[in-house]
Design a protein around this nucleic acid. Sequence first.
DNA 1: ACAATTTGACCTTC
DNA 2: GAAGGTCAAATTGT
Length: 272
Amino acid sequence: MVKMSKKIPGGPSTCHHHFMAIEEINRAYELMRQLHAVLLQMFPAQVGGDILKEILTLTSSALSGLQSTRCGSSGGSDDDPRCAGDKRKSLQRSDRPGDPKRRRKQETWSIATTVPHGDGYQWRKYGQKMINNAKYPRSYYRCTYREGQGCLAKKTVQQEDSCADPPSFRVEYSMQHTCKTIDAAAVPFVMDSAPKEASLHSGGFSSEQHLSLPQDTAGNLIQDENLWIYDQMQECLPLEPELLGKMDVASSISSPTGPWDWDMLMGDDDGW
DNA sequence: ACAATTTGACCTTC
DNA sequence: GAAGGTCAAATTGT
């Protein structure tokens, strides 16, 4: 049984969906374990045993990820008063999304991940800044569909100081996505607390599954850069800002269809 | 030409 | 004044 805390980080009212998702995955994990045991009894030659093992590993890893993720969210009810072409100075300072007074009202949640861009959404970078006491700059992203669909989702990505292999990034999200363009089925969900060997494929870490890789406009992977980035990671070199920038190019990841539906995990409308 | 990223300036809070 | 977040002009890439 996966160790599971009943404590709900963001409080039961805001995290109901999140908590329910953990409960359901946990239940599925238990059922699969039972199925695994039955199969082993019936077919000692382990017919399908590897598949089940992999499913168990994935489920365990997803659970760890969910439990390490802080709940809390806003419901996306915050309307952005601006339209795309508005001039910066035309707004009252306190009405601007970037205004700290306004920003603090928004709830945020963060994850640590080796796949800072592998969340299935498309992001556009709008800023980068060196942060105090941090080795690496923090990058600021907003949803690509902010203008088209008014999606106010944002995130910041910062590589953590530790020389992990692969490097770990702290991704802080604010505002739920309201856009409808997510390829949620293709979300590879790998969290920091997941065991490193628990990859989406039994072969362990691979650049294609665990890194957000540069793509061309059609979404095709740019192979040379993949290899280069992966080499950097294998040597456990800190990612230079330039390299981070290259990784930022990829706003979505091409991956085998994953079992985890981001919308389900996040809750559909009232947060998680 | 268009889209995405970079980067310095700007703004508010502490 | 420092720090963090955002804007938008300039630059780069496709």
